[in-house]
């Protein structure tokens, strides 16, 4: 039941389906009748990426091809733009391996860019040494016909810091999954997400954080805006293993549904086997606040502008948490573009 082997063997029976609890809202078996042929090599010039100006190194993976082994030596800082490109109607899988030695720092600017009706899978492995720090910013702009599943396995070390902000506008089926092995030991984790969906887009932000040691910190905030017939999915699970005392974990998911036919599904889960913990989650789903809309409109703002302003402010709370200044501005612009109809 792994997507990689399903693509390799062209075997739809290995695709996850509604019957798999973790995939009940992102059914692949019901969607993909036949797995397409392997994708041919990427044709043409992909042009420059949005994050290229901020990076010292650009790594491109096109239709599953290309080397992506990134290593940051102890004490050094790297700015890497990682571009994952998909083109055409084939199937492909890509692998990325990122390792940070003790005390190293990495700004990872990751983009998913696609056109066509592809089936793509990306596996990322990120390993952080002691005291290492990563800020991962993901902009996922898959094509409306594309199926894209990105799965990241993050392994933290004591005193390391991992901060992630994912922004997506979905795909035909899209899932961005992050699994974090959290050793505690004053390591800190921030997992944020924003989904902005329109038409028939589907996006699934899934996270699993496993706290295995004492003194771990996790903060999560995901916000979504869905309109038309789009569907947003958020699944967050925080596991606190036996003995992982003094874990402090917070999870928030808030979504706005702006049309009658859109859908939001959420499952904020806590699985706790230790008693000295403070864990909380909050979840809200609803329409735009009518009072705020009224206020904006009686100040003379046209309805569309008022709506855009309020939704931008809504997701802005997540974007504000990005550390990297230029990246934050860039991301804010990217979001604003997708919020204005």
């Amino acid at each position: 039941m792994s997507l990689t082997s399903a693509i390799r063997d062209r075997d739809v029976a290995q695709l996850p389906s509604r019957r798999d609890e973790d995939w009940r809202w992102t059914d692949l078996r019901g969607l993909i009748r036949i797995l397409p042929q392997p994708s041919p090599p990427f044709a043409g010039d992909p042009g420059a990426g949005v994050f290229d100006p901020l990076a010292t190194q650009v790594v491109t993976l096109a239709n599953g091809r290309g080397e992506a082994v990134i290593y940051v030596p102890a004490g050094e800082t790297a700015w890497v733009a990682l571009r994952i490109l998909s083109q055409g109607d084939g199937a492909h899988a890509a692998r990325v391996s990122i390792t940070l030695a003790d005390g190293a720092r990495l700004h990872l600017f990751e983009t998913y860019e696609g056109e066509g009706g592809y089936v793509a899978q990306t596996s990322l492995a990120l390993t952080l040494g002691e005291g290492a720090g990563v800020e991962r910013i993901v902009l996922a702009a898959d094509s409306a016909g594309g199926v894209s599943i990105s799965q990241a396995e993050v392994t933290l070390s004591p005193k390391s810091e991992f901060a992630q902000t994912v922004l997506t506008c979905g795909g035909r089926r899209q899932r961005i999954e992050t699994r974090v092995a959290h050793p505690g030991g004053h390591a800190s984790l921030r997992l944020d997400g924003v989904y902005l969906l329109a038409d028939k887009a589907h996006a699934d932000l899934t996270t699993v954080v496993t706290h295995a040691g004492v003194d771990g910190l996790t903060e999560q905030l995901t916000k979504g805006v869905v309109r038309d017939q789009a569907r947003g999915v958020f699944q967050g699970r925080i596991v606190v293993r036996e003995g992982a005392d003094r874990t402090d974990a917070k999870m928030g998911h808030h979504a706005l549904i702006l049309s009658d036919r859109a859908e939001v599904d959420a499952k904020p889960e806590l699985e706790i086997y230790a008693d000295d913990v403070a864990c909380a989650h909050g979840n809200t789903v609803g329409a735009l606040d009518e009072d705020a809309m009224f206020y904006a409109r009686q100040r003379g703002m046209p309805e569309a502008d008022a709506r855009a302003l309020l939704t931008e402010a809504f997701v802005g709370q997540v974007i504000d948490r990005i550390d990297h200044n230029e990246a934050r501005d860039l991301v804010r612009g990217w979001a604003a573009e997708r919020l204005r109809p």
Partner: peptide, 13 residues
């Protein structure tokens, strides 16, 4: 649907 309003909060301590 766009007119439903759900609020959920949970704590473990």
């Amino acid at each position: 649907n766009g007119q439903a309003k759900f609020e959920h909060e949970a704590t473990t301590t």
